[in-house]
Protein backbone atom coordinates (compact mmCIF):
# COMPACT_ATOMS: atom_id res chain seq x y z
CA UNK A 1 0.00 0.00 0.00
CA UNK A 2 1.47 3.31 -1.07
CA UNK A 3 1.46 6.31 1.26
CA UNK A 4 -1.68 8.39 1.10
CA UNK A 5 -3.56 5.66 -0.72
CA UNK A 6 -7.05 4.59 0.32
CA UNK A 7 -7.44 0.98 1.46
CA UNK A 8 -10.23 0.44 -1.02
CA UNK A 9 -10.54 2.56 -4.12
CA UNK A 10 -14.20 2.28 -5.04
CA UNK A 11 -13.83 4.36 -8.18
CA UNK A 12 -11.32 1.83 -9.53
CA UNK A 13 -13.85 -0.93 -8.90
CA UNK A 14 -16.51 1.07 -10.69
CA UNK A 15 -14.22 1.62 -13.68
CA UNK A 16 -13.18 -2.01 -13.98
CA UNK A 17 -16.42 -3.96 -13.58
CA UNK A 18 -15.90 -5.67 -16.94
CA UNK A 19 -12.46 -6.92 -15.97
CA UNK A 20 -13.72 -8.10 -12.58
CA UNK A 21 -16.59 -9.99 -14.19
CA UNK A 22 -14.13 -11.63 -16.55
CA UNK A 23 -11.97 -12.79 -13.60
CA UNK A 24 -15.03 -14.22 -11.87
CA UNK A 25 -15.90 -16.10 -15.04
CA UNK A 26 -12.37 -17.49 -15.26
CA UNK A 27 -12.53 -18.50 -11.64
CA UNK A 28 -15.79 -20.34 -12.16
CA UNK A 29 -14.18 -22.17 -15.04
CA UNK A 30 -11.21 -23.08 -12.81
CA UNK A 31 -13.68 -24.46 -10.29
CA UNK A 32 -16.39 -26.14 -12.34
CA UNK A 33 -14.07 -27.91 -14.78
CA UNK A 34 -11.91 -29.68 -12.19
CA UNK A 35 -14.89 -30.60 -9.99
CA UNK A 36 -16.81 -31.98 -12.97
CA UNK A 37 -13.85 -33.94 -14.31
CA UNK A 38 -12.94 -35.06 -10.80
CA UNK A 39 -16.50 -36.23 -10.19
CA UNK A 40 -16.56 -38.40 -13.30
CA UNK A 41 -13.21 -39.98 -12.44
CA UNK A 42 -14.23 -40.43 -8.80
CA UNK A 43 -17.55 -42.01 -9.80
CA UNK A 44 -15.82 -44.62 -11.92
CA UNK A 45 -13.27 -45.31 -9.18
CA UNK A 46 -16.02 -45.54 -6.57
CA UNK A 47 -18.17 -47.99 -8.50
CA UNK A 48 -15.06 -50.09 -9.01
CA UNK A 49 -14.27 -49.90 -5.31
CA UNK A 50 -17.83 -50.82 -4.30
CA UNK A 51 -17.90 -53.83 -6.61
CA UNK A 52 -14.40 -54.94 -5.69
CA UNK A 53 -13.76 -53.77 -2.14
CA UNK A 54 -10.11 -54.85 -2.37
CA UNK A 55 -9.28 -51.87 -4.61
CA UNK A 56 -10.71 -49.30 -2.20
CA UNK A 57 -7.55 -49.22 -0.05
CA UNK A 58 -5.16 -48.59 -2.95
CA UNK A 59 -7.50 -46.00 -4.48
CA UNK A 60 -7.69 -43.96 -1.28
CA UNK A 61 -3.94 -44.33 -0.78
CA UNK A 62 -3.16 -42.93 -4.24
CA UNK A 63 -5.73 -40.14 -4.09
CA UNK A 64 -4.53 -39.38 -0.56
CA UNK A 65 -0.94 -38.90 -1.80
CA UNK A 66 -2.20 -36.68 -4.64
CA UNK A 67 -4.09 -34.63 -2.06
CA UNK A 68 -0.91 -33.93 -0.10
CA UNK A 69 1.18 -32.61 -3.01
CA UNK A 70 1.53 -28.84 -2.63
CA UNK A 71 -0.06 -27.09 -5.58
CA UNK A 72 2.99 -24.92 -6.25
CA UNK A 73 5.17 -28.01 -6.48
CA UNK A 74 2.68 -29.63 -8.82
CA UNK A 75 2.69 -26.60 -11.11
CA UNK A 76 6.50 -26.54 -11.09
CA UNK A 77 6.58 -30.17 -12.22
CA UNK A 78 3.87 -29.76 -14.84
CA UNK A 79 4.95 -26.54 -16.56
CA UNK A 80 7.89 -28.16 -18.36
CA UNK A 81 5.54 -30.89 -19.59
CA UNK A 82 2.23 -29.25 -20.35
CA UNK A 83 3.36 -25.62 -20.40
CA UNK A 84 1.46 -22.59 -19.17
CA UNK A 85 -1.79 -24.17 -20.26
CA UNK A 86 -5.20 -24.76 -18.71
CA UNK A 87 -4.26 -28.46 -18.55
CA UNK A 88 -1.36 -27.67 -16.18
CA UNK A 89 -3.79 -25.87 -13.89
CA UNK A 90 -6.50 -28.51 -14.11
CA UNK A 91 -4.38 -31.56 -13.32
CA UNK A 92 -3.60 -30.58 -9.72
CA UNK A 93 -7.06 -29.11 -9.16
CA UNK A 94 -8.73 -32.30 -10.39
CA UNK A 95 -6.46 -34.51 -8.31
CA UNK A 96 -7.30 -32.58 -5.14
CA UNK A 97 -11.01 -33.32 -5.59
CA UNK A 98 -10.52 -37.05 -5.98
CA UNK A 99 -9.92 -38.04 -2.36
CA UNK A 100 -12.91 -36.08 -1.10
CA UNK A 101 -15.19 -37.28 -3.86
CA UNK A 102 -14.19 -40.95 -3.82
CA UNK A 103 -14.66 -41.14 -0.08
CA UNK A 104 -18.07 -39.55 -0.12
CA UNK A 105 -19.35 -41.46 -3.16
CA UNK A 106 -18.20 -44.79 -1.72
CA UNK A 107 -19.77 -43.87 1.63
CA UNK A 108 -22.97 -43.06 -0.26
CA UNK A 109 -23.08 -46.46 -1.97
CA UNK A 110 -22.13 -48.31 1.17
CA UNK A 111 -24.83 -46.46 3.13
CA UNK A 112 -27.61 -48.06 1.08
CA UNK A 113 -29.44 -50.39 3.48
CA UNK A 114 -28.70 -54.08 2.82
CA UNK A 115 -32.39 -54.98 2.90
CA UNK A 116 -33.05 -52.47 0.13
CA UNK A 117 -30.37 -54.11 -2.01
CA UNK A 118 -31.73 -57.55 -1.19
CA UNK A 119 -35.28 -56.54 -2.03
CA UNK A 120 -34.11 -55.09 -5.35
CA UNK A 121 -32.19 -58.24 -6.18
CA UNK A 122 -35.05 -60.48 -5.06
CA UNK A 123 -37.52 -58.64 -7.27
CA UNK A 124 -35.40 -59.20 -10.35
CA UNK A 125 -33.32 -56.09 -10.93
CA UNK A 126 -30.20 -56.80 -12.96
CA UNK A 127 -27.02 -55.54 -11.39
CA UNK A 128 -26.85 -52.53 -13.69
CA UNK A 129 -30.52 -51.67 -13.19
CA UNK A 130 -30.03 -51.84 -9.46
CA UNK A 131 -26.97 -49.59 -9.65
CA UNK A 132 -28.70 -46.95 -11.75
CA UNK A 133 -32.20 -47.02 -10.28
CA UNK A 134 -31.56 -47.82 -6.65
CA UNK A 135 -27.96 -47.44 -5.51
CA UNK A 136 -27.12 -44.27 -7.42
CA UNK A 137 -30.16 -42.25 -6.32
CA UNK A 138 -29.72 -43.34 -2.73
CA UNK A 139 -26.04 -42.33 -2.79
CA UNK A 140 -26.89 -38.85 -4.11
CA UNK A 141 -27.05 -37.07 -0.74
CA UNK A 142 -23.53 -38.23 0.15
CA UNK A 143 -22.32 -37.39 -3.35
CA UNK A 144 -23.63 -33.86 -3.00
CA UNK A 145 -21.98 -33.53 0.39
CA UNK A 146 -18.69 -34.50 -1.29
CA UNK A 147 -19.29 -32.13 -4.19
CA UNK A 148 -19.94 -29.27 -1.78
CA UNK A 149 -16.68 -29.83 0.00
CA UNK A 150 -14.73 -30.41 -3.22
CA UNK A 151 -16.16 -27.27 -4.81
CA UNK A 152 -15.43 -25.03 -1.85
CA UNK A 153 -11.91 -26.44 -1.70
CA UNK A 154 -11.46 -25.96 -5.45
CA UNK A 155 -12.58 -22.31 -5.26
CA UNK A 156 -9.83 -21.67 -2.72
CA UNK A 157 -7.16 -23.62 -4.58
CA UNK A 158 -8.02 -22.07 -7.92
CA UNK A 159 -6.59 -18.74 -6.76
CA UNK A 160 -3.13 -20.34 -6.91
CA UNK A 161 -3.68 -21.23 -10.55
CA UNK A 162 -3.02 -17.59 -11.54
CA UNK A 163 0.66 -18.56 -11.46
CA UNK A 164 -0.04 -20.50 -14.61
CA UNK A 165 -3.11 -18.81 -15.96
CA UNK A 166 -1.98 -15.21 -15.75
CA UNK A 167 -4.19 -12.90 -17.74
CA UNK A 168 -5.72 -15.65 -19.92
CA UNK A 169 -7.42 -17.75 -17.25
CA UNK A 170 -5.97 -16.64 -13.91
CA UNK A 171 -9.29 -15.97 -12.26
CA UNK A 172 -9.60 -14.14 -8.97
CA UNK A 173 -6.07 -15.28 -8.09
CA UNK A 174 -4.85 -13.00 -10.85
CA UNK A 175 -6.51 -10.02 -9.16
CA UNK A 176 -4.76 -10.95 -5.91
CA UNK A 177 -1.37 -11.46 -7.59
CA UNK A 178 -1.56 -8.16 -9.51
CA UNK A 179 -2.71 -6.30 -6.41
CA UNK A 180 0.21 -7.60 -4.40
CA UNK A 181 2.73 -6.88 -7.16
CA UNK A 182 1.55 -3.28 -7.65
CA UNK A 183 0.91 -2.57 -3.93
CA UNK A 184 -2.75 -1.94 -4.76
CA UNK A 185 -4.87 -3.30 -1.89
CA UNK A 186 -8.19 -2.71 -3.65
CA UNK A 187 -7.33 -5.46 -6.13
CA UNK A 188 -6.13 -8.14 -3.75
CA UNK A 189 -8.80 -7.46 -1.14
CA UNK A 190 -11.44 -7.60 -3.84
CA UNK A 191 -10.00 -10.86 -5.21
CA UNK A 192 -10.00 -12.42 -1.76
CA UNK A 193 -13.49 -11.17 -0.90
CA UNK A 194 -14.97 -12.38 -4.16
CA UNK A 195 -13.51 -15.86 -3.77
CA UNK A 196 -15.08 -16.06 -0.32
CA UNK A 197 -18.40 -14.93 -1.78
CA UNK A 198 -18.10 -17.58 -4.50
CA UNK A 199 -17.37 -20.29 -1.94
CA UNK A 200 -20.32 -19.35 0.25
CA UNK A 201 -22.63 -19.12 -2.76
CA UNK A 202 -21.55 -22.55 -3.98
CA UNK A 203 -22.21 -23.97 -0.56
CA UNK A 204 -25.72 -22.54 -0.43
CA UNK A 205 -26.36 -23.64 -4.01
CA UNK A 206 -25.52 -27.25 -3.21
CA UNK A 207 -27.81 -27.27 -0.20
CA UNK A 208 -30.63 -26.09 -2.46
CA UNK A 209 -29.79 -28.64 -5.15
CA UNK A 210 -29.84 -31.44 -2.61
CA UNK A 211 -33.22 -30.37 -1.31
CA UNK A 212 -34.54 -30.19 -4.80
CA UNK A 213 -33.39 -33.58 -6.06
CA UNK A 214 -33.83 -35.63 -2.88
CA UNK A 215 -37.29 -34.71 -1.59
CA UNK A 216 -37.51 -38.16 0.04
CA UNK A 217 -34.53 -37.46 2.31
CA UNK A 218 -36.21 -34.56 4.06
CA UNK A 219 -39.70 -36.04 4.14
CA UNK A 220 -41.07 -35.43 7.61
CA UNK A 221 -41.09 -38.44 9.90
CA UNK A 222 -43.68 -41.09 10.43
CA UNK A 223 -47.32 -40.34 9.93
CA UNK A 224 -48.13 -42.54 12.90
Amino acid sequence: MLPGQQLIDFSWIGDHLGQIAERIGQHLELTILPVAIGFLIALVLSIWAVRQPIVYGPITAVTGVLYTIPSLAAFAVLIPITGLSLVSALIPLVSYTLLILVRSIVAGFRGVAPEVLEAAEGMGYTRTQRLIRVEFPLAVPMMIAGLRLATVTAIGLATVASIIGGDTFGGLGQLITEGLQTFFPTKYLLGAALSVVLAVSADVLFVQIERWITPWARAPGSAG
Partner: peptide
Protein backbone atom coordinates in the same frame (compact mmCIF):
# COMPACT_ATOMS: atom_id res chain seq x y z
CA UNK B 1 -32.46 -65.41 -13.02
CA UNK B 2 -34.24 -62.06 -13.37
CA UNK B 3 -37.20 -63.64 -15.18
CA UNK B 4 -37.54 -66.17 -12.33
CA UNK B 5 -37.42 -63.48 -9.65
CA UNK B 6 -39.89 -61.16 -11.37
CA UNK B 7 -42.37 -64.04 -11.23
CA UNK B 8 -42.01 -64.55 -7.47
CA UNK B 9 -43.33 -62.06 -4.92
CA UNK B 10 -40.81 -61.26 -2.21
CA UNK B 11 -41.61 -59.67 1.16
CA UNK B 12 -38.99 -59.22 3.88
CA UNK B 13 -39.11 -58.17 7.49
CA UNK B 14 -37.50 -54.76 7.11
CA UNK B 15 -39.66 -54.32 3.98
CA UNK B 16 -36.74 -53.12 1.83
CA UNK B 17 -38.95 -50.41 0.38
CA UNK B 18 -37.01 -47.97 -1.78
CA UNK B 19 -36.68 -44.82 0.34
CA UNK B 20 -36.27 -42.56 -2.70
CA UNK B 21 -39.48 -43.70 -4.34
CA UNK B 22 -43.05 -42.87 -3.44
Amino acid sequence: LTELRRGIGYVIQQTGLFPHQT
